[in-house]
Design a protein around this nucleic acid. Structure first.
Length: 190
DNA sequence: TATGAGATCAACT
DNA sequence: GTTGATCTCATAC
């Protein structure tokens, strides 16, 4: 387990710098989690970002200080976890899309109702379910305080980039980052 | 392997 | 009333 914790300063930078730096970092929520292998950046100038049209009650956490969680309901069913970054004039955040499970495997399996390790956290909705993320408990919560724990990676992984998944606006922007060789991705990189 | 529908809710038009 | 930063299961090839 890497020793250095990521604090607020880590997130006080552009999403385009923070997103690749998050790959390989370890995220735990109540001691459950693992290594981040896939994220997507959402800059406020990006039509696909929830903050693009300004502050609303849903996206208010994105407009707060960097280093907090933004949690939203996706397709009426899933909770998706984002990390809020430097505002650079307005709100930006990073969607956590996939994790390589390392800690609390039993709790993840119970929450997901699944045994296949590979499918526990390979997608944003799956990450939310496996880590027990809800808006009530986690939205707007600081990432450097319990139940969150974030640890910097110890080595420099090779970062793959590609277009983001499941969006219709600004679909061509290559703002998806990940570990190309990981088998825990929601989809392979091309 | 690939494609399609259903689930389910809050923001937004 | 429509539309998602999605997932699962069923059915078809």
């Amino acid at each position: 387990m890497p020793a250095n914790r990521l604090d607020r300063r880590f997130f006080a930078r552009s999403v385009h710098k923070v997103a690749p730096d998050l790959i390989g970092a370890v995220l735990l929520v109540d001691g459950v989690g693992g290594r981040i292998v896939e994220v997507e950046a959402y800059h406020h100038t990006d039509p696909a970002a929830h903050s693009y049209r300004g502050k609303t009650s849903r996206n208010a956490a994105m407009f707060g200080p960097p280093g907090v969680a933004y949690v939203y309901r996706s397709y009426g069913i899933h909770w998706c976890l984002n990390f809020v970054c430097e505002r650079e004039g307005s709100a930006s955040a990073i969607l956590i899309r996939a994790i390589e499970p390392l800690e609390g495997l039993a709790r993840m399996r119970r929450r997901r109702g699944l045994s296949d390790e590979r499918l526990l956290c390979s997608g944003p909705g799956r990450v939310g379910q496996a880590l027990g993320i809800t808006r009530d408990r986690h939205n707007g919560h600081a990432l450097d305080r319990p139940p969150f724990a974030l640890f910097a990676r110890s080595d420099q992984p090779e970062i793959a980039t590609g277009v983001r998944i499941g969006i219709s606006k600004a679909a061509e922007l290559p703002w998806r980052y990940g570990l190309a060789e990981s088998k825990f991705l929601s989809k392979p990189f091309r």
